[in-house]
Simulated scan of single mutants.
Amino acid sequence: MSEQPIKVLLAKKKIDVHGRGSKLIARELRDAGMEVTYFRFGTAEDIVNAAIQEDVDVVALSIMTSGHILLAQDLIPMLKEKGKPDVLLIMGGVIPHGDFEELKSLGVHEVFPPGLPGETVADYIRENVGKLSLN
């Protein structure tokens, strides 16, 4: 019997229309053996509902515009309230390095700057899925 693949929801917030980086990381995570659901645009509530519907292990947010802190502030309590406190929550993209610690203090498990190999993200996910919960 083989293990089930790690399930990842790769999401972007509603006004974030970029695509190249998120499509690249989706492909790299799939190449690493993960099952990736690509959720193009949504509000925090839409993202949480998709995470529940897809029964994911990881919510990965790709951010190329501002609003990452507000998104985390909205998303994390909803994930907890709706029964997903054990999901691994990561963010990546164009996020100012100075915001990394605030995001982590809110409950984001890791923040990845642009340009990292997808393998780095996949390794982090494999090492931490099922081991961390939201604050």
Rank of each mutant, 00 (worst) to 15 (best):
M1D: 09
Q4W: 12
P5S: 06
I6P: 05
K13N: 08
K14Y: 13
I15M: 15
H18V: 09
G21A: 14
S22P: 01
S22R: 02
K23F: 14
I25W: 04
A26I: 07
E28A: 13
L29W: 04
G33Q: 10
E35I: 03
E35L: 12
V36S: 00
V36A: 02
V36P: 00
F39S: 05
D46R: 00
E54M: 03
E54C: 09
D55E: 15
D57W: 08
V58K: 09
V59I: 07
A60N: 06
L61K: 00
I63V: 15
S66L: 12
G67H: 10
L71G: 07
Q73G: 01
D74R: 15
P77D: 09
M78W: 04
L79A: 09
E81C: 08
K84Q: 08
V87G: 07
L88V: 02
L89A: 01
L89H: 04
I90L: 06
G92L: 08
P96G: 13
H97Q: 14
G98D: 15
D99S: 12
E101R: 10
E102T: 12
V111M: 02
V111H: 00
V111K: 00
P117Q: 05
G118Q: 01
E119I: 11
E119F: 06
T120N: 14
T120G: 01
D123C: 06
Y124G: 11
R126T: 11
R126S: 12
K131C: 10
K131R: 15
N135I: 14
